[in-house]
Design a binder for these strands. Structure first.
Lengths: 203, 203
DNA sequence: ACTGAATATGAATTCATATTCATATGAATC
DNA sequence: GATTCATATGAATATGAATTCATATTCAGT
């Protein structure tokens, strides 16, 4: 965790540091990211950095925490808004949709999460034994859907949760890279949902 | 590419180097992998390493080439064997199945590929502009399936290709991590196929 | 056995970066 | 205005590899 000094900083400077760190970690893995580059872009002296954080990893963990919090609250707000109105598949649609929206609105955060997911050592250092939080989230949703009778009971939810996670990541990547995908025309979402629904729905 | 010297090496030593490199790159990203560790494990002097390869990246590219060749030939042989006998979905099943089998039989190669896929700079350095070869492979298969009339023509194949790729990666990861998954009982494959078929099949 | 070319070696060097530290600044308190 | 305390600074140092290089060894051909 950052030192007291960091929290005492004027908001403006604190934000500059956070922004600089996001830029650096979005374009470099944890190991290749340079503290120097962050300090430089934030306009602080090298020494100051170590006034605020224990070391590079300290800043990184802090950033991940911010990022997760931001994403979770983003998705949850969509969920909460629609919980009652929608059935399972519509809810799933909202989850994917808010996931995509989040990625589009925060394009720099996406690669940070991706890189963390692929660095198992780092991941473990942050989340302990816990293996895959995204899959857990989908698993919960699926169980809810199964209980509602929306999902074919033949299906192994753990496997499907993994598949849904993988698809979400790939598609998010696809959408961001493509750049020109317009979420509002919903075509990509509909395609995806069409596919998933047919795969899961109870007949 | 490795230097002539490397190819002149006695097979035993050459293999030791390759094995050591696989071990190192399977457990570390390109940047955190240490040439020192590779030389040490292979039982060669640091200096020798640079007799065989230009630098770390040279070895890495060579390794990726080996790996891709191995995997492609593995999958193709399954495909070729079954091309005529099976319909699209059975063919897809074979592709996934051989992908899983390959990963199980070569567990150290899987993480190397994963890490490369997530290091866009490195990926581009090896494959140029070309974005995602796995998705391309699935796209081709899907087009074949569509032409055969097996796939719902409403579906956007490019999107589905991305989804299939993401699922393949996630599931492979799942299977390897789990360790105890027994491919022979095929349950996981059937679950997956059941899901995919219902999502794609022409009605 | 002799010789030159290829190959092997690991200590020394280089390089890029993280981290520390002694000192400066500046604002609040007396 | 002096004293204290928190914060800022960037040059100096530490670190951890990658890479080089001068020297030793091996080997094939004679």
């Amino acid at each position: 965790m950052p030192k007291e000094t960091f929290y005492n900083l004027p908001e403006d400077k604190r934000n500059r540091i956070i922004e600089a760190a996001i830029d650096e970690f979005a374009t470099h893995s944890f190991h290749t990211a340079r503290v120097t580059a962050i300090a430089e872009q934030a306009g602080i002296a090298m020494g100051s950095f170590y006034q605020y954080f224990e070391d590079k990893k300290d800043l990184y963990k802090y950033l991940i925490e911010l990022l997760v919090e931001k994403k979770l609250s983003y998705i949850n707000s969509e969920m909460v808004k629609n919980k009652d109105k929608y059935d399972f598949f519509q809810l799933l649609r909202e989850v994917y949709l808010s996931g995509f929206r989040f990625a589009i609105e925060n394009p720099r955060l996406q690669p940070i999460g991706m890189m963390l997911a692929n660095d198992k050592d780092l991941y473990r250092e942050i989340y302990g034994e816990h293996e895959d939080r995204s899959a857990d989230f989908f698993l919960q949703m699926l169980e809810y859907g199964k209980a509602q009778g929306a999902i074919d009971p033949e299906i192994d939810l753990k496997i499907v949760a993994k598949m849904l996670t993988g698809m979400l990541y790939s598609l998010t990547d696809f959408i961001i890279e493509d750049g020109k995908v317009n979420l509002d025309d919903m075509k990509i979402i509909d395609q995806m949902l069409y596919f998933i629904e047919n795969g899961l729905r109870k007949k």
